[in-house]
């Protein structure tokens, strides 16, 4: 589930509020959005892709809350790791372009 909106990173663009399919966030006047309906989060990781500054963290546990530590997430490189791994964002190459599914299917018996 979504666990973090980093206040220090957020540039208040409200993209996450718009793109979340299950309407989890609420925008805040002159502030970072709040996680208003956490239990509605479907753990799809989409908001992370659209956040331009890697301010969001979706924890892998889909059925329960967990506590996260921003400094630790930054240190381990997990903040923004999905965007990086899919090659999403300007200056990156989408992994769609380098998708090797055809190689894998050769191994399918």
């Amino acid at each position: 589930m979504i666990e973090l909106v980093s206040k220090s990173r957020c540039i208040e663009c409200n993209l996450c509020v718009s793109v979340c399919p299950t309407n989890v966030f609420d925008s805040v006047l002159n502030g970072a959005p709040t996680i208003a309906r956490q239990s509605d989060c479907q753990t799809c990781y989409i908001c992370e892709l659209y956040c331009p500054v890697d301010a969001l963290y979706v924890a892998p546990q889909s059925d329960r809350q967990t506590t996260v530590n921003e400094a630790e997430l930054t240190a381990t490189g997990l903040l923004g790791s999905y965007r990086e791994n899919v090659g999403w964002g300007s200056g990156r190459t989408s992994t769609a372009k380098t998708d090797q599914t055809f190689q894998l299917l050769k191994h399918l018996k």
Binding site: Y45, P60, S81, Y82, N85, V86, T95, T98, D99, Q100, T101, Q103, L104
Partner: peptide, 11 residues
């Protein structure tokens, strides 16, 4: 190849 093909599997 798997990691490139489906980043969200590994996430």
């Amino acid at each position: 190849a798997m990691r490139v093909a489906q980043p969200n599997f590994f996430l």
